[in-house]
């Protein structure tokens, strides 16, 4: 894999939009309104896909890089930093044992044993959280993203019991006091107490034609693209490298693949 991230972005966008690369000038130029207030023009060229997915190259990940991605995520979505067992997290890191407990890793290579594995919502093809939600507050979009409607969530936490990956967090309290001022993004709402939240694959950035926040800062270790298009960069990568998914036996068909 030698392709740069920019090339990949063009490919992903091209395959997604079904456009010639020549028409993708807007992708190359950084949007002029990046720091301005989004307007209707911001959303004129969204990124689209049949089924969004992600490949995580764990060999490229260090603790620092995981934290860099996690920080970008927190900053984009106003994720509060709460210490202890009531914490809220969208993107975080764990050991191989935590990420793949059903591998029962007895004798791991030293390298893998020390590696920090990024963890996030798997955006499963058959998501259990969506099946159990009594109000459709969590639902699956046509492009495969498992999305949260915070307006509708009643806070029953059935989705947290249903998710086999521990990807969901509940707002046990008002999260606003736990968002750092310097990491605050006024263009993205905070949450209120009593609702469940998780990674959304940055739907708000995809709508602006941008890549998810973690992918942007991942130094090429995260590949995001259309699993439904066999010519996409992510499918090339999946053909090239051996990958595994977390807990395939749970039958939820995760859309996040790991290169070990």
């Amino acid at each position: 894999m030698k392709s740069s991230r920019r090339q990949f972005m063009k490919l992903a966008a091209a395959s997604a939009l079904g456009l010639g690369a020549g028409k993708l000038a807007f992708m190359g130029d950084a949007p002029a309104f990046a720091s301005d207030i989004p307007t209707a023009a911001t959303f004129e060229h969204p990124l689209k896909a049949k089924h969004w997915g992600m490949v995580i190259d764990t060999t490229k990940f260090t603790k620092e890089l995981v934290e860099k991605c996690a920080h970008a995520c927190r900053k984009q979505h106003n994720v509060p930093v709460i210490e202890g067992k009531k914490e809220v997290k969208w993107f975080w890191g764990g050991t191989f044992e935590e990420a793949f407990p059903n591998q029962i890793p007895e004798y791991l290579s030293e390298d893998v044993e020390k590696r920090e594995i990024p963890l996030l919502c798997n955006h499963c093809e058959s998501p259990m959280c969506v099946r159990v939600c009594p109000t459709q507050a969590t639902f699956q979009r046509a492009d495969g993203i498992v999305m949260m409607d915070m307006h509708r969530c009643i806070g029953c936490r059935y989705c947290m019991a249903g998710c086999p990956f521990g990807a969901r967090s509940f707002n046990f309290q008002n999260p606003r006091p736990f968002i750092k001022d310097e990491d605050f993004n006024p263009n993205y709402p905070t949450r209120t107490r009593g609702v469940v939240e998780k990674c959304t694959f940055c739907t708000e950035l995809l709508a602006e034609g941008k890549m998810p926040a973690c992918v942007e800062v991942s130094e090429g270790a995260l590949t995001f693209g259309d699993l439904g298009d066999e010519n996409s960069e992510i499918r090339h990568l999946l053909r090239e490298k051996f990958t595994i998914r977390r807990k395939p036996d749970a039958g939820t068909k995760p859309s996040v693949y790991y290169i070990i």
Binding site: G155, F170, F172, Q173
Partner: peptide
């Protein structure tokens, strides 16, 4: 909020 309970993530 439910922060007053012993519940957790």
């Amino acid at each position: 909020g439910l922060v007053i309970t012993g519940l957790s993530r």
